[in-house]
Design a protein around this nucleic acid. Structure first.
Lengths: 345, 345
DNA sequence: ACGGTCGCCTGGATCGATCCAATACTAAAG
DNA sequence: CTTTAGTATTGGATCGATCCAGGCGACCGT
């Protein structure tokens, strides 16, 4: 009598079979190998499935086939101010891309001091089929561990430490992005384009820097004193920018991150210099901050949607045990031009 | 001979039982009802579990107990520019909070035009135990649907349309946040504090506006012409701010979102007015944008970490069929003060 | 020493879909 | 009209943990 209490028990495969006048296996085939059934039988079974609103029980299927159709992703605790917004954009598209094949993303967490924590548990419980790993910049202990235990995984991020690693990965050529940004600033007429990057210990930072360096070399610009390394926060960038702009010869600054670029914009505001017109600035990652910063920050945008699609494709390849066409895929970023790098008429 | 090919088959409950010289049920009890076992038996079983590194197979357990220990969350496609960064911060803490009880968050997606899409599928496949719903501002068709089919769920967001709804929810008092911001601006000496809000159709927007209104009323300030409604983007806000600042009587602007507040900051820059000193500005949500905006944007911060904890607590209450102590929980936001609302000495 | 109570432990049945081997059917060939 | 080949369909067994009803032992009082 209480309507929200309990609903009709879910129909099972047996229910459908009985109703359609066939055996369980036939219903199973209708779902998994429809080509095995005669046309009329298939139609009849499908009609009953439709009528009853039947959906296979995931637990039962998972028990039998030993595959959960779940993909694990360790979701790190939010670090205020850092650009995990990037990861979030990636996850969004990852969810969409997996949906198409009936897979789902399961988030888990782990001890922040132990990069391996959490993987083992899910694996032994046969709770997930594969993992997606997003942070490869600090070495790849997870990848090493998963390879050792024979668990399928794909990383977003190349294996920096071990170029010989054979696992499938997708990454974006950061150096190409920095190169695009630098070339763009040079083309806008800025001669001496400086670089504001991360500390030398960052592989990603050094990779991006190499793109800046390459562009300057191609343009025949002397890089002496133009490359500066700082930590990733607005204030450090602001102060570095002040020092850099002191003598007035630097008129372009390519930055390793939007955060740092925004710090440069702050310094410009404090010096009454016009972004774009007096000094061109570019950031990296096209974060929300770049979109709302005044007067709009030109930034390198990673094709995260495409990354997610490639990652999912590789996951499927690995799961189906077929060797992926190309297990290491490098994608190219694009430059989103806003007013921070454009002269006002 | 190929080490990464296949690993030892996972030990099962039967393996453990045999090794410990007890029956399967005894091992199961050791895991689920240890108080039923004699001390020495328990110790012996636990030792074997430890030794073999045994973890119960989730699929089998799920099939038998009909509970997956998974909680579904529909992850909407990234909408450029909107503050789904808020949701991401929420999800982070949600994952942490669920981890403590062995639950996991499963993300799924659905047709953007159909708010119900996806729920049904997971439910019928008995793939999740409960849902967490994050968007209740546009009515609550999901809640209605889930209540109808008897599925457990908790919403982040009050049931705006139907105050009589009895489902468990957690929300943050937006009106209180706007009130705090407005009082803060008044206390800083700004007399006429304007409101830049969303269109009237937004329940959340109107709720926040009511907090501004309440604060002005308490301070005895006439609100005529001070409340303006626009859509949520930087440019609309910039233009509205210009109009608003024209006559020079408005010296404080409380905004319904960081995006809009940033638009106001842009307008100030264009009019050569100093944020905080000439015109006080506050935003809402303490997004990354607020943190990096020049010269720092005072913003209302929602206690998302606490929200996540309360949501998980309610989920557990609902799943264990015990009535939650308080099924409707309203939390209070805080104000993060930065320089956009402070006079420079 | 014996029946009774209580608590620990056992083996069989079960959840629902899939695997597997075997059977019923159909159509073509002899 | 029977045999053969091949396909469509069936029923039993299975994945691994939990539910359930019953058994066995220890310990008590008399």
């Amino acid at each position: 009598m209480s309507p929200s209490r309990r609903l009709d028990p879910q129909p099972t495969l047996a229910t459908v079979a009985e109703r359609a006048g066939v055996s369980r296996q036939t219903v199973s085939n209708a779902l998994n190998s429809p080509e095995l059934l005669r046309e009329d039988t298939l139609a009849r079974v499908q009609a009953v499935i439709e009528e009853l609103g039947y959906t296979p029980n995931r637990a039962a299927r998972q028990l039998r086939t030993r595959s959960s159709h779940l993909i694990g992703l360790r979701f790190e605790p939010a670090q205020e101010g850092t650009s995990n917004a990037l990861i979030d954009r990636f996850v969004h598209t990852l969810v969409e891309a997996t949906a198409r094949t009936g897979h789902h993303i399961v988030l888990f967490s782990g001890d922040p001091h132990d990069p391996l924590d959490g993987y083992d548990r899910l694996l032994k419980a046969t709770a997930v089929d594969a993992f997606v790993i997003t942070d490869t910049y600090a070495g790849t202990p997870q990848a090493d561990f998963l390879r050792k235990v024979g668990a399928p995984f794909v990383t977003f991020g190349r294996p920096w430490d071990d170029p010989s690693a054979r696992h499938p990965w997708v990454d974006v050529a950061g150096s190409k992005g920095a190169q695009l940004a630098t070339e763009h600033l040079l083309a806008a007429g800025h001669q001496r384009v400086a670089w504001l990057g991360w500390e030398k210990s960052s592989r990603i930072g050094e990779d991006r820097r190499s793109g800046w360096s390459r562009a300057l070399r191609a343009a025949g610009v002397d890089q002496a004193g133009l490359g500066v390394r700082i930590s990733d926060n607005v204030d450090a960038a602001r102060m570095a920018a002040h020092a850099m702009l002191e003598d007035g010869t630097v008129t372009g600054v390519a930055c390793v991150s939007d955060t740092i670029a925004i710090g440069v914009l702050h310094a410009l505001a404090e010096r009454n210099l016009r972004p774009g017109t007096d000094v061109g600035v570019t950031g990296f990652d096209d974060s929300l901050g770049a979109q709302v910063a005044w007067p709009g920050l030109t930034s390198v945008r990673q094709p995260l949607e495409q990354v997610a699609i490639e990652v999912v494709d590789l996951v499927h390849a690995v799961l189906s045990l077929r060797a992926p066409a190309e297990p290491a895929r490098m994608l190219e970023p694009t430059l989103v031009v806003r007013r921070s790098s454009l002269r006002q008429d």
